[in-house]
Amino acid sequence: MGMRVLVVDDSGFMRKRIVAELNSWGHSVVGEAKGGEEAVELYRALKPDVVTMDITMRDKDGMTAAREILLEDPMAKIVFLTILQGEKYKAEARKLGAVGFVNKSDPLSLAEAIEQMEQHKKK
């Protein structure tokens, strides 16, 4: 059985692509948020297994939203899915407690990250 995923990205086009990819791997997308504020609200309401989180967003950026979600639920599984590259962001994500940091141009890494979490969930 796939994971219940909440997709957070301010670009509708990217959300569409991520949802298509996740569906093709057998995961179900339970919600889509186009900003950090909406992500926190949807997380509270839906309690998904995984959140794919963009970083650069207009109202509230992904790092802030992830911090808020993890403060409320330290067991939340957040994978940053971003175009930003560099150790600085990865380190910040790790420090926050995110379980993954994936580049948007590399969807296979997202599949691998979610698969790892699925294995972890089964155990």
């Binding site: 990205d9 670009s11 086009f13 990217m14 175009i83």
Partner: peptide, 14 residues
């Protein structure tokens, strides 16, 4: 604008 930006950034990164 955000879709256009994402596509350009993904294309550039790739």
């Amino acid at each position: 604008a955000s879709n256009y930006q994402e596509v350009l950034l993904v294309t550039g990164t790739s």
